[in-house]
Design a protein around this nucleic acid. Structure first.
Lengths: 171, 171
DNA sequence: ACTAACACGTGACGC
DNA sequence: TGCGTCACGTGTTAG
């Protein structure tokens, strides 16, 4: 019956260690989650799951940004492309950043039309870039809007020879 | 005593719902973790905490990569800069590649003068890029020359003039 | 056998 | 009050 007492004590100690280990594990995970919160803006008081979702979107976003940065000078030669992305940053009520890029044939009238459309938006142009390559042209505009909308990145991508509404391209 | 039975049943149902909700919550989080595993390479069968750590490092890495990518678009705001480099390839008497970049204030007449100068060189323009940022402009021209001359650096002074049609950039 | 990691159910707290 | 989230302790399984 002495055995029983000893084994009982050992069991208690083991259980205690177990719970402690588990607590430590949770602490580790939560610490990582906290650093993620500090890394991704606008996730300070977010849900654990929502935080992970936001991390995922941010990761994809950065991956796209990095890849298109490495091949930044490349442009599709066969297809026309128009992309409008609202970047994250409007969460704090501040101005959101909109990146618009268009790639098409380098024909007269394109630039003036493009500028008219951009002027109609009344946005603050932070950076403008125009590049030409073998008869093709690509414009990239980084603009700032005062009205801070949702923080979600709504990206419209038009591929193929179709031109989106609101932007008439001379062909 | 009927009351007690009813309340007991309610408690059981509530508890069941509770556990179910918690299970669903865990499933959501784990799903997000799974997508993170699919996103970050080499974390297929990794620890939950280690996965998060790896996600953090990857996030920082991508952030740096994206930042230094956008740094390629940065230009000095305080000093004017003109660079002409002859890339290797023209050593064998074949066509060499010349890269010229100029960074200065975005004033009218600069572009037309620049184009005149470039036209005088009779080079094949392989790629042209013009970027503006906060009143500054930067041009990068990658040109091909048929005669393999030396790669000397020349400075030019620009007079007043007009913008070429279709190339007006607002700042 | 011992450690580490996971899922589970439950109590607690906030809207 | 119910609903959602969190931390906790425990049972269970793999290396």
């Amino acid at each position: 019956m002495e055995r029983k007492v000893v084994s009982a004590e050992r069991s208690i100690a083991a259980l205690k260690n177990h719970s402690e280990a588990e607590k430590k594990r949770r602490a580790r995970i939560n610490a990582h989650l906290d650093t993620l919160r500090s890394l991704v803006p606008g996730t300070s008081k977010m849900d654990k799951a929502s935080l992970l979702a936001e991390v995922i979107t941010h990761l994809k976003e950065l991956k796209i940004q990095a890849t298109e940065a490495s091949e930044g000078l490349l442009m599709p030669l066969d297809i026309d492309e128009l992309r409008v992305e609202q970047q994250e940053g409007g969460l704090h009520g501040g101005p959101c950043v909109i990146t618009a890029s268009i790639c098409c044939d380098c024909k007269p009238g394109v630039l003036s039309d493009l500028r008219q459309e951009l002027d109609a938006l009344h946005l603050i142009i932070m950076r403008a870039e125009i590049a030409t390559l073998e008869g093709r042209m690509r414009n990239v505009f980084v603009m700032s809007s005062c009205g801070g909308g949702g923080g979600d990145t709504k990206a419209h991508q038009f591929r193929g020879g179709r031109h989106p509404p609101g932007l008439e391209i001379h062909t």
